[in-house]
Simulated scan of single mutants.
Amino acid sequence: MATPPSDSSPINVCIIEDHSDFRNTLRAAINAAPSLQCNAAFSNAEDAFEYLNESGAPDIIVLDLGLPGMDGIEAIPKLRELAPETKVLILTVFENKTRVLQALGAGASGYLMKASGIKSIIQGIEDAHNGIAPLSAEIAQMVFATFRAFKPVSHEAEISDREVEVLQKLADGATRIEVADQLHVSRHTIDSHIRNIYRKLQVHNVSGAITKAAAMHII
């Protein structure tokens, strides 16, 4: 059972969900929880914008992504602008990695799947209010796997300016011999730079080095 917050004020929740049956079920479940209340529920983002302009900000906005009119991801920055202190919690059927990362990057405070069930959703709303970013298990695994793929370069292994220059020329399509000629150094020197780049970026070929360097905004 949900535990009321210490100040006895219920957490004010706004729902933006276009499926009326699910919206009504979720609203009833929120209002049945002693720590929560839902005073507003909308089928689209545009009506929610108007409500926020007129009635002020709730504590939590539960937002679907597949909305009519403005898409949920597009709506997040506007919701954050109208209610900067409000936590936006995504609740959707979408588990596409691109949409997950887009939503979190746009400012969502958590990402839950509808299939998680009402009990988990209620807990997620409370967690978001308490500063914990709720993520469904499958979403958390996806996010962590994405970030593990790009290990940061340690301070001791920073890419030098010369190595960046070599990488950029390789990324532009130059061969090692052409890079050596353009930089007026020997092929052996270029090979040495490339070995250092591989070690620092923890990759094993030129394409891997270029891809990782681009992802890390080194080039």
Rank of each mutant, 00 (worst) to 15 (best):
M1W: 07
T3R: 04
P4G: 00
P5S: 01
S6R: 06
S9Q: 11
S9R: 14
S9Y: 05
S9C: 08
S9G: 08
I15H: 02
H19R: 09
D21T: 15
F22V: 02
T25F: 00
T25Y: 00
L26Y: 06
A28Q: 08
A29G: 06
P34R: 11
N39V: 04
A40V: 03
A41M: 02
A41N: 04
A41F: 03
S43W: 04
S43E: 02
N44C: 02
N44D: 01
E46F: 01
L52S: 03
N53E: 03
E54S: 02
G56W: 01
A57W: 08
I60V: 06
I61K: 00
G66L: 12
P68D: 05
P68A: 09
G69V: 07
G69M: 07
E74F: 05
K78P: 05
R80Y: 03
L82D: 01
A83D: 06
K87C: 04
V93C: 12
V93K: 01
N96W: 08
N96Y: 12
K97E: 15
T98R: 14
L101A: 09
A103V: 13
S109K: 12
L112A: 09
S116A: 15
G117I: 15
I118C: 06
I118V: 15
K119E: 15
K119T: 05
I122P: 05
G124M: 10
G124D: 12
A128Y: 04
G131K: 09
G131S: 06
A137P: 14
A140P: 08
V143T: 14
T146G: 07
F150W: 10
K151G: 09
K151L: 13
S154F: 02
S154T: 10
E156K: 15
A157S: 13
E158Q: 15
E158R: 15
V164W: 12
E165V: 14
V166P: 01
V166Q: 07
V166S: 09
D172G: 07
T175D: 03
R176Q: 13
R176M: 15
I177Q: 12
A180V: 06
D181I: 11
D181E: 14
Q182I: 13
Q182K: 11
Q182A: 15
H184Y: 10
V185P: 11
V185K: 11
H188K: 12
I190S: 03
I190H: 05
D191I: 04
S192W: 02
H193T: 09
I194Q: 04
I197A: 02
Y198S: 09
R199P: 01
Q202Y: 05
V206A: 12
G208V: 02
A209V: 08
I210P: 06
A213Q: 05
